[in-house]
Simulated scan of single mutants.
Amino acid sequence: MSDGLFISFEGVDGAGKTTQVQQAHNYLQERGLRSLITREPGGTPVGLTIRELVLHGLAAFPSVAVTGGTDVVDASDDLAPRTEALLYAADRAEHVAQVVRPALDRGDIVLCDRYLDSSVAYQAGGRDLSEDVIRRLSLWASQGLMPKRTYLLDADPSQSESRLDHEPDRLESAGDDFQQHVRQAFLQLAQNEPDRFLVIDATQSIDQVWQIIQDDLDKLVEGREPDLPQVDDDNDDADAHDDADEDESTAGYEDDEQGAESDWTEAMDTPDQAPEADADQDDQDMEAATVGGDADDDSVPVGSRARRLLRSRLLRKTR
């Protein structure tokens, strides 16, 4: 039996569903859990065509929809409520068969932006069709597949409408009464199935809404083992190898510097095979050179024995 997890996000337009779906996906990926974002309508190639039709009407296809013997679709032409309901059911049938069930069979977590409840809320609540008929039609299309959890982001349509950043589609522009009926239908569905629905006040900030979802999501995925390919380990090994190479390279440079310094200081500390008189003279030159200045004063000629002896003593003092 599949251990996939099916989660849907519902609410009126502009409630913030899409934002929270993406938040959930990112969070699950960070935990190493494979998840899939999909949507209705439009979760398949066939569904994209249906989406254009149900959201934008016949005007979305002026080249193929012929009205009155012309290729121009009149703006008054629209889909009948039952036609709309059947199109949503067709989209759902294709979506479940081609995307959702295969993903669940693989053990994925499926995050769906709208599902069956939207059909009931919009077609029954908004279009005044029979709730029982719409529900049975949707269950037939999906072969009875229902989400384990449904997050209902609840907001007054008059408030959520202001969040829309695009031209309203057919449903978004259906009027305030339509949207209010849809909202009440969603709330009634949640009341009928309290174990599946989690109703969240969508007027809160994005972070506040997400925190509620995250807390519940943690419970739903508790005990699931990470199933994403672990690519970080290889990268860590490569990074560790590079770091080791860098350390060895740095150590080599440090050794070379220490060796060079050692050779230099040893050469400076080794007595020359010069007469003692010359050595005494060098000491006198060095003492004269350091009066009123430091051991590396520019007054000492560069390359002179006194300069070298001064640097040798300075090195020994700073160790």
Rank of each mutant, 00 (worst) to 15 (best):
V120C: 12
S118P: 15
S118L: 08
D105N: 12
L87Q: 07
V96Y: 05
S76A: 08
V72S: 12
P102I: 12
E84L: 03
S119W: 11
D71I: 03
V110G: 00
R101A: 14
Q98E: 15
P81E: 07
D74R: 11
Y115H: 14
E84T: 01
Q123F: 12
V99D: 08
S76V: 01
D77E: 08
L111K: 04
E84N: 13
S119D: 11
I109A: 09
Y88P: 00
R101I: 04
I109R: 01
Q123A: 13
D74I: 01
V100D: 05
A93P: 01
P81H: 10
D77P: 00
A80R: 02
G126N: 10
G125T: 02
D117T: 07
Y88I: 09
D113S: 08
C112D: 13
D105G: 05
L79I: 06
D108L: 12
H95I: 02
L87Y: 10
A85N: 03
L104C: 09
Q98D: 15
A97Y: 09
D108E: 15
E94T: 06
A85G: 11
Y115S: 06
D117Y: 08
V99G: 07
P81Y: 09
Q123R: 12
L79H: 14
A121Q: 11
L87R: 03
V120D: 14
V96L: 13
Y88S: 02
T83Y: 00
A85L: 11
V99H: 04
D117N: 09
D71Q: 14
V96N: 02
A97K: 14
A75W: 00
